[in-house]
Design a protein around this nucleic acid. Structure first.
Lengths: 141, 141
DNA sequence: CTTGACCTTCCAGCGCAGTGGAAGCCCTAG
DNA sequence: CTAGGGCTTCCACTGCGCTGGAAGGTCAAG
Protein backbone atom coordinates (compact mmCIF):
# COMPACT_ATOMS: atom_id res chain seq x y z
CA UNK A 1 0.00 0.00 0.00
CA UNK A 2 1.14 3.58 -0.55
CA UNK A 3 1.93 6.04 2.20
CA UNK A 4 -1.43 7.81 1.98
CA UNK A 5 -3.36 4.65 2.68
CA UNK A 6 -1.05 3.71 5.52
CA UNK A 7 -1.65 7.16 6.95
CA UNK A 8 -5.41 6.71 6.66
CA UNK A 9 -5.27 3.31 8.34
CA UNK A 10 -3.09 4.44 11.24
CA UNK A 11 -4.49 7.91 11.79
CA UNK A 12 -1.11 9.54 11.22
CA UNK A 13 -0.13 12.01 8.51
CA UNK A 14 2.16 11.11 5.62
CA UNK A 15 4.57 13.69 6.99
CA UNK A 16 4.71 11.91 10.31
CA UNK A 17 5.24 8.52 8.71
CA UNK A 18 8.19 9.79 6.69
CA UNK A 19 9.52 11.45 9.82
CA UNK A 20 9.27 8.15 11.72
CA UNK A 21 11.26 6.47 8.99
CA UNK A 22 13.97 9.10 9.29
CA UNK A 23 13.82 8.76 13.07
CA UNK A 24 14.53 5.05 12.78
CA UNK A 25 11.33 3.71 14.30
CA UNK A 26 9.85 2.48 11.00
CA UNK A 27 11.95 0.52 8.50
CA UNK A 28 12.37 1.95 5.02
CA UNK A 29 9.81 0.15 2.85
CA UNK A 30 10.15 -1.22 -0.66
CA UNK A 31 9.78 1.25 -3.51
CA UNK A 32 7.72 1.02 -6.64
CA UNK A 33 9.40 1.75 -9.97
CA UNK A 34 7.96 5.25 -9.68
CA UNK A 35 9.85 5.77 -6.43
CA UNK A 36 6.69 5.64 -4.31
CA UNK A 37 6.99 3.89 -0.93
CA UNK A 38 5.21 0.53 -0.88
CA UNK A 39 4.25 -0.74 2.58
CA UNK A 40 3.13 -4.17 3.74
CA UNK A 41 0.87 -5.06 6.67
CA UNK A 42 3.79 -5.16 9.09
CA UNK A 43 4.04 -1.39 8.81
CA UNK A 44 0.57 -1.09 10.37
CA UNK A 45 1.63 -3.23 13.32
CA UNK A 46 4.85 -1.33 13.71
CA UNK A 47 3.11 2.03 13.76
CA UNK A 48 0.61 0.65 16.27
CA UNK A 49 3.54 -0.28 18.48
CA UNK A 50 5.11 3.15 18.11
CA UNK A 51 1.85 4.81 19.11
CA UNK A 52 1.39 2.48 22.06
CA UNK A 53 4.93 3.00 23.27
CA UNK A 54 4.48 6.77 22.97
CA UNK A 55 1.25 6.54 24.92
CA UNK A 56 3.20 4.65 27.58
CA UNK A 57 5.46 7.68 27.82
CA UNK A 58 8.46 6.49 25.82
CA UNK A 59 10.36 8.87 23.56
CA UNK A 60 11.11 8.09 19.93
CA UNK A 61 14.76 7.61 20.90
CA UNK A 62 13.78 4.97 23.44
CA UNK A 63 11.43 3.30 21.00
CA UNK A 64 14.20 3.21 18.42
CA UNK A 65 16.46 1.59 20.97
CA UNK A 66 13.89 -1.08 21.81
CA UNK A 67 13.55 -1.83 18.12
CA UNK A 68 17.30 -2.08 17.74
CA UNK A 69 17.54 -4.49 20.66
CA UNK A 70 14.75 -6.56 19.18
CA UNK A 71 16.50 -6.71 15.82
CA UNK A 72 19.88 -7.68 17.22
CA UNK A 73 19.11 -9.90 20.17
CA UNK A 74 15.53 -11.09 20.00
CA UNK A 75 12.70 -10.23 22.35
CA UNK A 76 13.48 -6.95 24.13
CA UNK A 77 11.16 -7.63 27.07
CA UNK A 78 13.79 -7.21 29.75
CA UNK A 79 15.00 -3.98 28.25
CA UNK A 80 11.44 -2.73 28.01
CA UNK A 81 10.78 -3.59 31.64
CA UNK A 82 13.87 -1.69 32.72
CA UNK A 83 12.70 1.30 30.72
CA UNK A 84 9.23 1.10 32.20
CA UNK A 85 10.66 0.95 35.71
CA UNK A 86 12.83 3.97 35.16
CA UNK A 87 9.88 5.82 33.66
CA UNK A 88 7.70 4.90 36.62
CA UNK A 89 10.35 6.38 38.89
CA UNK A 90 10.48 9.51 36.72
CA UNK A 91 6.73 9.79 36.88
CA UNK A 92 6.77 9.49 40.66
CA UNK A 93 9.30 12.30 40.85
CA UNK A 94 7.40 14.52 38.46
CA UNK A 95 4.12 13.88 40.22
CA UNK A 96 5.69 14.74 43.57
CA UNK A 97 7.18 17.94 42.12
CA UNK A 98 3.95 19.02 40.53
CA UNK A 99 1.99 18.23 43.66
CA UNK A 100 4.36 20.32 45.75
CA UNK A 101 4.12 23.14 43.22
CA UNK A 102 0.34 22.85 43.22
CA UNK A 103 0.30 23.21 47.00
CA UNK A 104 2.56 26.24 46.81
CA UNK A 105 0.46 27.94 44.18
CA UNK A 106 -2.53 27.39 46.41
CA UNK A 107 -0.61 28.88 49.32
CA UNK A 108 0.24 31.98 47.30
CA UNK A 109 -3.38 32.30 46.25
CA UNK A 110 -4.78 32.21 49.74
CA UNK A 111 -2.06 34.43 51.14
CA UNK A 112 -2.81 37.05 48.50
CA UNK A 113 -5.95 38.18 50.30
CA UNK A 114 -4.05 39.78 53.17
CA UNK A 115 -1.66 41.78 50.98
CA UNK A 116 -1.89 45.46 50.27
CA UNK A 117 -1.14 46.23 46.60
CA UNK A 118 0.32 49.56 47.65
CA UNK A 119 3.24 47.86 49.36
CA UNK A 120 4.49 46.27 46.11
CA UNK A 121 7.72 47.86 44.95
CA UNK A 122 7.96 48.42 41.19
CA UNK A 123 11.20 46.49 40.82
CA UNK A 124 9.83 43.47 42.66
CA UNK A 125 6.73 43.76 40.43
CA UNK A 126 4.24 41.90 42.60
CA UNK A 127 4.47 40.66 46.15
CA UNK A 128 1.88 37.96 45.50
CA UNK A 129 4.90 36.03 44.27
CA UNK A 130 7.55 36.27 46.99
CA UNK A 131 11.19 35.35 46.58
CA UNK A 132 10.98 32.43 48.97
CA UNK A 133 9.17 30.19 46.52
CA UNK A 134 12.51 29.72 44.80
CA UNK A 135 13.91 27.90 47.79
CA UNK A 136 11.07 25.40 47.74
CA UNK A 137 11.34 24.69 44.04
CA UNK A 138 15.03 24.36 43.47
CA UNK A 139 16.58 23.05 40.24
CA UNK A 140 14.93 19.64 40.48
CA UNK A 141 14.96 18.82 36.80
CA UNK B 1 27.29 47.47 38.87
CA UNK B 2 28.36 45.62 35.76
CA UNK B 3 26.70 42.54 34.41
CA UNK B 4 29.26 40.13 35.87
CA UNK B 5 28.62 41.31 39.38
CA UNK B 6 24.88 41.20 38.89
CA UNK B 7 25.29 37.64 37.67
CA UNK B 8 27.34 36.74 40.74
CA UNK B 9 24.77 38.30 43.05
CA UNK B 10 21.79 36.59 41.48
CA UNK B 11 23.31 33.24 40.64
CA UNK B 12 22.54 33.65 36.94
CA UNK B 13 24.99 33.80 34.04
CA UNK B 14 25.72 36.96 32.08
CA UNK B 15 24.27 35.19 29.05
CA UNK B 16 21.01 34.59 30.84
CA UNK B 17 20.77 38.18 32.04
CA UNK B 18 21.22 39.52 28.50
CA UNK B 19 18.69 36.99 27.31
CA UNK B 20 16.21 38.18 29.93
CA UNK B 21 16.67 41.73 28.71
CA UNK B 22 15.93 40.65 25.15
CA UNK B 23 12.97 38.62 26.42
CA UNK B 24 11.51 41.75 28.00
CA UNK B 25 11.56 40.65 31.63
CA UNK B 26 14.45 42.92 32.63
CA UNK B 27 14.59 46.56 31.56
CA UNK B 28 17.55 47.72 29.51
CA UNK B 29 19.96 49.34 31.99
CA UNK B 30 22.01 52.50 31.67
CA UNK B 31 25.28 52.23 29.77
CA UNK B 32 28.70 53.44 30.70
CA UNK B 33 30.67 55.46 28.12
CA UNK B 34 32.41 52.22 27.23
CA UNK B 35 29.09 50.63 26.30
CA UNK B 36 29.08 48.35 29.35
CA UNK B 37 25.70 47.78 30.99
CA UNK B 38 25.40 49.54 34.36
CA UNK B 39 22.79 48.08 36.71
CA UNK B 40 21.27 49.49 39.89
CA UNK B 41 19.87 47.60 42.89
CA UNK B 42 16.44 47.35 41.32
CA UNK B 43 17.83 44.87 38.84
CA UNK B 44 18.58 42.47 41.70
CA UNK B 45 14.97 42.71 42.90
CA UNK B 46 13.65 42.28 39.42
CA UNK B 47 15.70 39.17 38.78
CA UNK B 48 14.59 37.79 42.14
CA UNK B 49 11.01 38.28 41.02
CA UNK B 50 11.67 36.56 37.71
CA UNK B 51 13.22 33.58 39.47
CA UNK B 52 10.35 33.40 41.94
CA UNK B 53 7.74 33.60 39.23
CA UNK B 54 9.53 30.88 37.29
CA UNK B 55 9.65 28.72 40.38
CA UNK B 56 5.90 29.27 40.68
CA UNK B 57 5.59 27.75 37.22
CA UNK B 58 5.14 30.88 35.12
CA UNK B 59 6.71 31.16 31.68
CA UNK B 60 8.86 34.11 30.64
CA UNK B 61 6.01 35.24 28.37
CA UNK B 62 3.64 35.31 31.33
CA UNK B 63 6.18 37.09 33.48
CA UNK B 64 6.68 39.67 30.75
CA UNK B 65 2.94 40.18 30.61
CA UNK B 66 2.71 40.70 34.37
CA UNK B 67 5.48 43.26 34.14
CA UNK B 68 3.72 45.04 31.29
CA UNK B 69 0.48 45.18 33.27
CA UNK B 70 2.37 46.52 36.24
CA UNK B 71 3.98 49.22 34.13
CA UNK B 72 0.79 50.35 32.47
CA UNK B 73 -1.89 49.96 35.11
CA UNK B 74 -0.28 49.63 38.53
CA UNK B 75 -0.32 46.60 40.78
CA UNK B 76 -0.95 43.49 38.69
CA UNK B 77 -2.25 41.42 41.63
CA UNK B 78 -5.57 40.54 40.04
CA UNK B 79 -3.88 39.49 36.83
CA UNK B 80 -1.38 37.41 38.77
CA UNK B 81 -4.16 35.70 40.70
CA UNK B 82 -5.94 34.81 37.48
CA UNK B 83 -2.73 33.36 36.12
CA UNK B 84 -2.11 31.38 39.29
CA UNK B 85 -5.63 29.98 39.17
CA UNK B 86 -5.27 28.88 35.60
CA UNK B 87 -1.90 27.33 36.39
CA UNK B 88 -3.38 25.50 39.35
CA UNK B 89 -6.00 24.04 37.02
CA UNK B 90 -3.27 23.06 34.55
CA UNK B 91 -1.32 21.41 37.32
CA UNK B 92 -4.39 19.46 38.41
CA UNK B 93 -4.84 18.20 34.85
CA UNK B 94 -1.19 17.30 34.45
CA UNK B 95 -1.08 15.54 37.78
CA UNK B 96 -4.18 13.53 36.91
CA UNK B 97 -2.68 12.58 33.54
CA UNK B 98 0.63 11.56 35.01
CA UNK B 99 -1.05 9.60 37.78
CA UNK B 100 -3.16 7.70 35.24
CA UNK B 101 -0.05 7.03 33.17
CA UNK B 102 1.81 5.90 36.25
CA UNK B 103 -0.94 3.41 37.02
CA UNK B 104 -0.88 2.12 33.47
CA UNK B 105 2.88 1.68 33.44
CA UNK B 106 2.51 -0.30 36.65
CA UNK B 107 -0.21 -2.39 35.03
CA UNK B 108 2.06 -3.19 32.06
CA UNK B 109 4.88 -4.09 34.41
CA UNK B 110 2.90 -6.56 36.44
CA UNK B 111 1.18 -8.03 33.40
CA UNK B 112 4.57 -8.68 31.79
CA UNK B 113 5.24 -11.67 34.01
CA UNK B 114 2.64 -13.83 32.35
CA UNK B 115 3.81 -13.16 28.80
CA UNK B 116 5.83 -15.52 26.64
CA UNK B 117 8.52 -13.65 24.72
CA UNK B 118 8.18 -16.17 21.90
CA UNK B 119 4.72 -14.91 21.05
CA UNK B 120 5.97 -11.40 20.17
CA UNK B 121 5.75 -10.74 16.44
CA UNK B 122 8.73 -8.85 15.01
CA UNK B 123 6.59 -6.10 13.52
CA UNK B 124 4.79 -5.46 16.79
CA UNK B 125 8.23 -5.45 18.46
CA UNK B 126 7.20 -6.26 22.02
CA UNK B 127 3.89 -7.35 23.46
CA UNK B 128 4.76 -5.92 26.85
CA UNK B 129 3.42 -2.72 25.34
CA UNK B 130 0.04 -3.56 23.85
CA UNK B 131 -1.91 -1.36 21.43
CA UNK B 132 -4.70 -0.70 23.89
CA UNK B 133 -2.68 1.73 25.99
CA UNK B 134 -3.27 4.27 23.23
CA UNK B 135 -6.98 4.32 23.97
CA UNK B 136 -6.36 5.21 27.59
CA UNK B 137 -3.90 7.99 26.85
CA UNK B 138 -5.55 9.87 24.03
CA UNK B 139 -4.27 13.21 22.73
CA UNK B 140 -4.64 14.97 26.10
CA UNK B 141 -2.07 17.69 25.60
C1' DC C 1 53.35 47.24 25.78
C1' DT C 2 51.17 43.13 26.78
C1' DT C 3 48.37 40.10 29.14
C1' DG C 4 44.10 38.74 30.82
C1' DA C 5 39.62 39.44 32.62
C1' DC C 6 35.70 41.53 31.43
C1' DC C 7 32.52 43.38 28.30
C1' DT C 8 30.01 44.09 23.51
C1' DT C 9 27.33 42.21 19.37
C1' DC C 10 25.44 38.68 16.47
C1' DC C 11 24.55 34.17 14.84
C1' DA C 12 23.81 29.20 15.74
C1' DG C 13 22.24 25.33 18.10
C1' DC C 14 20.21 22.29 21.80
C1' DG C 15 16.09 18.76 22.58
C1' DC C 16 11.60 17.03 21.15
C1' DA C 17 8.19 15.60 17.80
C1' DG C 18 6.68 16.93 14.41
C1' DT C 19 4.57 20.70 10.68
C1' DG C 20 4.72 23.78 6.51
C1' DG C 21 5.97 24.82 2.11
C1' DA C 22 8.37 24.74 -2.43
C1' DA C 23 9.67 22.45 -6.61
C1' DG C 24 8.96 18.73 -9.24
C1' DC C 25 7.52 13.67 -10.74
C1' DC C 26 3.58 9.92 -11.43
C1' DC C 27 -0.75 8.45 -12.81
C1' DT C 28 -5.54 8.41 -14.01
C1' DA C 29 -9.95 10.46 -15.58
C1' DG C 30 -12.27 13.42 -18.52
C1' DC D 1 -4.02 17.47 -23.44
C1' DT D 2 -4.90 19.00 -19.07
C1' DA D 3 -6.30 18.98 -14.48
C1' DG D 4 -6.13 16.84 -10.11
C1' DG D 5 -4.49 14.26 -6.47
C1' DG D 6 -0.89 11.72 -4.82
C1' DC D 7 3.84 11.13 -4.28
C1' DT D 8 9.08 12.55 -4.01
C1' DT D 9 12.93 15.42 -1.83
C1' DC D 10 14.83 19.07 0.93
C1' DC D 11 14.98 22.91 3.94
C1' DA D 12 13.04 25.68 7.42
C1' DC D 13 10.31 26.53 11.31
C1' DT D 14 7.53 25.83 15.70
C1' DG D 15 8.01 26.63 21.33
C1' DC D 16 10.87 27.15 25.39
C1' DG D 17 14.81 28.77 27.86
C1' DC D 18 18.61 29.21 27.43
C1' DT D 19 23.91 28.05 25.91
C1' DG D 20 28.16 28.30 22.94
C1' DG D 21 31.19 30.52 20.12
C1' DA D 22 33.35 34.06 17.12
C1' DA D 23 35.14 38.62 16.51
C1' DG D 24 36.12 42.54 18.63
C1' DG D 25 36.23 46.71 22.31
C1' DT D 26 37.72 48.24 27.41
C1' DC D 27 40.35 48.54 31.28
C1' DA D 28 43.61 47.70 35.14
C1' DA D 29 47.86 45.41 36.60
C1' DG D 30 52.55 44.14 35.74
Amino acid sequence: MRIGQLAARTGLTTKTIRFYESAGVLPAPARRPSGYRDYDEDAVDRLAFVKAAQAAGLSLAEIREIITVRASSGAPCQHVLTLLDSHAADLDRRIAELTALRADVERLRSRAGILDPATCSPAAVCQVIPADVVARHVPTT
